[in-house]
Design a protein around this nucleic acid. Structure first.
Lengths: 209, 209
DNA sequence: GTCTATAGATTGATAGAC
DNA sequence: GTCTATCAATCTATAGAC
């Protein structure tokens, strides 16, 4: 009965996707413990028991959500080229990170929430992919410094500054909107913010003549 | 019986202080919903029922914790002088914010956690004190721009950059330590990070000649 | 002011009919 | 694959003895 099995696979894919999307939104808004399976089920318009049918436990569902977020992060990470043009590499990376904050703020919030609480569930992500990536970029930035392409600044503080500033626009969106007359940032404001973030950081790295 | 009343007052002050300190640590580590009154009671070595005796409900205890954090924030806010020396004002403010991240990371985490989740409990802080303070500093920075003392950059993106970067060292401390061979930053590293944050931001604001 | 016992509500998870 | 009913654990909060 190949037809029936195909259909079941499609139903599974469709439902899993709907649940993951709702879970990301609910976890972002209420945190892991503050989110109940019932809230996620209601948001996805799927009976609560079915969430357990597709994802055996709340923790496994949460981990799947974080894995999705990490995939998005990896795509942005790739845009930080270790070529020999720091201006282009940093501009591309910062722009990409700001776009992620604008388009997927929930993912950023779940990640922030997890790290704030000591990364009890995703610690392995930090000590593997993130650590490798960070060290490779630090090496690249050190080379730029030796070649006189950027100023002599400890690379890791620059990376933290980029992460902090770009992710702030997602994680603290509520505060930013409150200070913006309770309105979300307009496209123009997003562009201006993105350009300012890059301009300030680049002004601090650009070699003085 | 003035003696007995005095002693009771002292006991109350002592116990309330112990509970608030434990609550801040537990809330920072596990979030509001992830923290139970039992965890806070155990951390403070005080019977669970007594927490309810001193603070009528979990939410009121949480609010008292956030009020304490806001007091610390206000002290740092005062160090951002609206005088006519932007270099001194920003250096003082950034240094103060970095010190807060170093000395009171738990408070910063509770605040971040709250804003990430849409500030359900502290929304009034955002729309009163924080909004007033922010607007006053934006006015001051606009004046600096008109007087040619800093470059023409939208002040609010600068403020967000300062908040994001300084608070990142508290909120994402776990990630930073993981990338630092699982060790907390040394005093030297804190100083270097603080100086770098200021230098980069000032390089982007300092008028070009 | 301290502390045990417990009420009342909510939660993650599962059993079992359809 | 869907969904109702329900269990067992946990939580906030309080009553009441000391």
């Amino acid at each position: 009965m190949p037809e029936i099995r195909l259909k079941k696979t499609e139903i599974r894919a469709e439902n899993e996707s709907r649940i993951l999307k709702s879970a990301e939104r609910i976890f972002a808004r209420h945190g892991f413990r503050g989110s109940s399976m019932r809230m996620i089920a209601d948001d996805a318009s799927i009976p609560k028991a079915n969430i357990h049918y597709y994802f055996s436990s709340k923790e496994k569902l949460y981990r799947r959500v974080v894995e999705r977020i990490f995939t998005v992060w990896l795509e942005a990470a790739a845009s930080f080229e270790t070529s020999n043009d720091p201006h282009a590499a940093l501009h591309s990376y910062i722009s990409e990170k700001m776009e992620i904050s604008r388009l997927y703020p929930d993912g950023s919030k779940v990640w922030a929430n997890e790290v704030i609480h000591g990364a009890p569930i995703i610690h392995d992500f930090l000590t593997s992919a993130l650590e490798d990536w960070t060290n490779s970029r630090i090496v690249a930035m050190r080379r730029w410094i030796e070649e006189g392409k950027i100023r002599d600044v400890e690379p890791r503080w620059i990376l933290y500054m980029i992460w902090a500033t770009t992710q702030h626009y997602a994680d603290f969106a509520h505060q930013i909107e409150t200070l913006n007359d309770d309105k979300a940032l307009s496209i123009n404001q997003w562009q201006q913010a993105r350009d300012t973030v890059f301009d300030i950081i680049w002004a601090g790295l650009e070699p003085k003549d």
